[in-house]
Design a protein around this nucleic acid. Sequence first.
DNA 1: CTACAATGTGAATGTCTATTCACATAAAGG
DNA 2: CCTTTATGTGAATAGACATTCACATTGTAG
Lengths: 199, 199
Amino acid sequence: MSTQKLNTEARREQIARAALELFTREGLEGFSIAKLSASVGLVPSAIYRHFKGKEEVLVASLDVLRDKLYGLVEAARDESDDPVDVLERLLRKHARLIASGKAAPHILLSSDAARGHAKRRAKLHRIFVGYMHRIEGIAAEGQAMGVIRKDVGAETIALLFAGMIQPAALMMSAGEKNFDLKSHVNQSWKLFHQAIRQK
Amino acid sequence: MSTQKLNTEARREQIARAALELFTREGLEGFSIAKLSASVGLVPSAIYRHFKGKEEVLVASLDVLRDKLYGLVEAARDESDDPVDVLERLLRKHARLIASGKAAPHILLSSDAARGHAKRRAKLHRIFVGYMHRIEGIAAEGQAMGVIRKDVGAETIALLFAGMIQPAALMMSAGEKNFDLKSHVNQSWKLFHQAIRQK
DNA sequence: CTACAATGTGAATGTCTATTCACATAAAGG
DNA sequence: CCTTTATGTGAATAGACATTCACATTGTAG
């Protein structure tokens, strides 16, 4: 049995991507080198040509996660100059991702984030904080422009924003079939928007 | 080596409690019969005198989780007749639990909910939905009493409420030492309260 | 075209896991 | 006090796992 050979750089990326998907789908518990290698059409031992071990694969998958997540924010920013509008667009981007079932970024907001080796945990934490800082930045911008109230910290606004996404992701992944994501997002946004706007 | 013998009912409860704690602390990945039995001073095989297997232990631990979670809601309801006040008390109870590091409910309800055996997943899902229904009930009560706005569904209010708790729990368990939980709760409540109140 | 380095393979190793079972001991009732 | 039954023990089994290594194959530089 022979597989097409790829240079390390390409393989590393392919493996890291597959690792993120596997991690997202099965969690830490279901993540194994065997499953990972199978998902890229390799044999387990081949993984070790490109990574020192399982831990290094997981850490690499976090880079993919970071890029996806931050990319979402950048895309939203590019679409509008009004910070409030940017937040709404970002929320709807998240919703679309959640609805598609491939809600990769949201494992960040999950419990697996809090576990694992210290180094990996620290990295996930940095990504999460970085994401929050970006939301905070958008909120602060809105405050400076006078479209978002100033008597509440930008950090609080950012956390509340995250709070709109997380329970919705949970409802969907838990398979609540009667859950109407679209309507939840619309109503949540309405509440959130009225709560934060400058009066 | 001999250990004090306990009747099955008492042992089952002790084991289920320990299981919830272990599950909360280590996640599914770190949960093993060996660690569990050690935490109650038994030998692994002893667990099988009281449970058919690992899966049954996990399911039993969910009963403990349910009781804790619903108990929190009941306690908050008992303390006040004003639904808005009940919600604030409940939020602060959650905050205290999170601060104490024993944030059992919150972590579990994030991502492990979506995994594992179908039966266990379904049970966790029922618990989550049951919790949401309770919050929804409080919100609906407030709407009926005219202290909470009626132009937004009680379900949305409940989800936003959950959204105040989950990201905070995550921040704490991820070990963000600069995170000021107390101030987050105060500001979140201020925002949430103003957002939902009847004007 | 040929050698060499990079990449892939399959078998082997050792650790951890859940689970079972024959045996031991404590508790409780007669 | 003694017997029975529930509970606990330690050893054994079988499977999953991460990781290593000797060997095979591919791609490529000279």
